[in-house]
């Protein structure tokens, strides 16, 4: 078994309204910053033991589909690195 850290990034699907990101963008603009767009995403770091990187990725992908992301709202990415 090898120790891995998986990073899961969960973001809204294209076209899904993100009121918090819009509010954050407006706040930055009020502070005088110039920007074109702002998107927000959630990131989870998961430490786990697995046979190999593929097994770690498979387990974390399952976790993401079962809980961390909502398929109606989100797309996600999983990356895995040995610790």
């Amino acid at each position: 078994m090898t120790a891995y850290t998986a990073t899961v990034t969960v973001r809204l699907k294209a076209g899904v309204l993100d009121p918090e990101a819009e509010t954050t963008q407006r706040a930055l603009e009020r502070l005088g910053f110039d920007l074109v767009d702002l998107r927000s995403a959630d990131q989870f770091e998961i430490d786990l033991q697995a046979e190999d990187a593929d097994a770690a990725r498979e387990r974390v992908t399952d976790m993401t589909e079962r809980l961390l992301a909502n398929p109606t709202l989100h797309d996600y990415e999983v990356t895995v690195e040995a610790q």
Binding site: V16, L17, P19, E20, E22, T23, T72
Partner: peptide
Amino acid sequence: GCEASLTPGAFTINRSA
């Protein structure tokens, strides 16, 4: 109910935030 797939879709953050 939506998160549990008893019903379709999702209820998420209000447009007004």
